[in-house]
């Protein structure tokens, strides 16, 4: 088996599903996240808009990419948390908005989240974002009770 060829094929598939709306890569701007703003004023950031909104096909394709790009191997099947944190608890280290999720996947994060911007076209990242944003947040996350 030629693994390089296999990876190249996978990236091609991903690029193909990106289609015409993949466009040029967008460099990540500064993160808003859950930050405190000095003087109460947020710095100007580039606004990143998800082209898919909550498109059902994008959700399904994003789910497939979540498995195929090995996201589930760290974050668990369905993003329930494993080596990496849960992605379905409604809590976010680096912000849970569309643009913040895009930046986390595109540029990576400290402590091991790899940057996928080099091998995934923007549209593929947006589909993963769309999938994650479609996941329901369970009720009563803050409390774990044994009584």
């Amino acid at each position: 088996m030629d693994l390089r060829a296999e990876l190249a094929a996978l990236v091609l598939v991903v690029a193909a599903c990106g289609g015409s709306d993949s466009g040029a890569s967008t460099p990540p701007a500064s993160d808003a996240g859950n930050r405190v703003f000095a003087g109460g004023v947020a710095p100007p950031t580039e606004h990143l808009e998800n082209p898919f909104d909550s498109d059902t096909d994008a959700v399904l394709e994003g789910e497939r990419l979540f498995g195929g790009m090995n996201c589930a191997e760290c974050h668990g099947g369905g993003g329930v948390g494993f080596v990496g944190p849960s992605l379905v608890d409604g809590r976010w280290r680096y912000g849970g908005g569309d643009g913040e999720l895009f930046r986390s996947i595109y540029a990576g994060r400290p402590r091991g989240m790899p940057a996928y911007g080099g091998i995934l076209p923007d549209a593929a990242i947006w589909r993963i974002v769309t999938y994650l944003r479609s996941q329901p947040v369970p009720e009563n996350v803050p409390t774990e009770s044994w009584r």
Binding site: V83, P85, S86, D89, P138
Partner: peptide
């Protein structure tokens, strides 16, 4: 740490069921 993700308390952005 992985499979019983509810034994951590340091990360408010990672809350998992048992």
């Amino acid at each position: 740490f992985l499979v019983a993700g509810d034994v951590r308390s340091d990360d408010p952005a990672d809350v998992r069921p048992p």
